[in-house]
Every structure is written in structure tokens, then in C-alpha cells.
């Protein structure tokens, strides 16, 4: 699953633009992931300039 490390996130939305499933959304300054839609592909983790996103094995 996708883990958002909120203490690192700069709420810029770079990740939202590359998500092939449209699972991410930046609501004001709060990044959300729809766990039903997210396929844990990890593309968003590359886009983050800060490294706030990580795909973990936890379900």
C-alpha cells in the first residue's frame, strides 16, 4: 500500500499528476490516496521532490 509521510510531504501535488489511476488528490494542503483505486505501482514515489511517498508491504 501507499504510505504518505506527512511530516515530509510539501503538499505540492507533483505526485497527483503522474498517478495513472487518478488515486491521489490534493485537497487544499492535504494529500489523499484512495486505497480502493491505488494499485501501489510506485510511480508517484519517484515524482515526489522530497521522498514523502513510499510503497510498503503492509495491507
Amino acid at each position: 500500500m501507499l504510505n504518505i509521510r506527512r511530516e515530509i510531504c510539501g503538499y505540492c501535488g507533483a505526485c497527483v499528476s503522474v498517478c495513472p489511476e487518478g488515486a491521489l488528490e490534493l485537497i487544499d494542503a492535504y494529500l489523499t490516496v484512495d486505497s480502493e483505486t491505488c494499485i501501489s505501482c510506485g510511480i508517484c514515489t519517484k515524482a515526489c521532490p522530497l521522498g514523502a511517498l513510499e510503497v510498503t508491504d503492509e495491507v
Binding site: 510539501g10 507533483a14 499528476s17 503522474v18 498517478c19 510511480i43 515524482a47 521532490p49
Partner: peptide
């Protein structure tokens, strides 16, 4: 409107 990941500039 998905941006291909190699065409998104990650900026700071």
C-alpha cells in the same frame, strides 16, 4: 491527463 513520469520535472 496523466503526465508520463519521465516528463514530469520534479522540482524544489
Amino acid at each position: 491527463s496523466t503526465v508520463p513520469v519521465d516528463e514530469l520535472m520534479s522540482c524544489i
